[in-house]
Design a protein around this nucleic acid. Sequence first.
DNA 1: TGAATAATATAGCTAATGCTATATCATGGT
DNA 2: ACCATGATATAGCATTAGCTATATTATTCA
Lengths: 118, 118
Amino acid sequence: MLEDYTELIADLIAANGEARTIDIARRLGVAHPTATKTIARLKREGLATARPYRGIFLTEAGEAMAKRVRERHRLVVDLLIAVGAPREAAEADAEGVEHYVSQATLRAFSDFLRRREA
Amino acid sequence: MLEDYTELIADLIAANGEARTIDIARRLGVAHPTATKTIARLKREGLATARPYRGIFLTEAGEAMAKRVRERHRLVVDLLIAVGAPREAAEADAEGVEHYVSQATLRAFSDFLRRREA
DNA sequence: TGAATAATATAGCTAATGCTATATCATGGT
DNA sequence: ACCATGATATAGCATTAGCTATATTATTCA
């Protein structure tokens, strides 16, 4: 979950200049206390910071995680589409699948896609 | 989790003629009370039955689930290998990935594999 | 400025998944 | 037949992820 949160927070900051708890909750389809609690966990683990009633910010570790997660997400979506999954299914499935794909498999995905492009 | 349990119980019955709680726990790398609790949930949801101190048995619904899960698992492993993932990574990753692959994507996997075979 | 609204925070509940520790039941070997 | 051992069951605890309900703080607008 922390991975999803960091990715989303990075997205929101890029899009809106800030990441509010309520937007995070909305985008994840979750009640805000749930988001608040997970954000507290992000802080506890040094991935995010927040001042009360201000937005959420990522630490360096949080940004690094967000970047890694975003790249992995794209790779998974692209691979699924490359083997014939409908775009919508690929996007939806990737959300769950991405958390279980090892480095070795990701590398294979990347190589496969490069071959396909050529 | 229920999916993993039904699949494993079916495996154990096929291999040993019975599925004991302790073997389930061992195979899943979990303490036995954890397995006991999840088996209780299987029973509650009509997927399994058990008489105290006897083995665990699947209901029809449980068997159906086990079959579906096993086929899906193989499809995911085969697809991962087909795109170049090392066999071990494919086996390990499939364990998590399989729970997030939609019908549409599974069909794509199946078609892709058939094309590759030809 | 003050009040309404929107956002955030907090408290307290449920369920799933995990654990350790303890107690009970079954079985096998002497 | 009995007892040790192994399997099972039960109790109690922690964490994560979710919820509703309530309270508090910011902001906006009249």
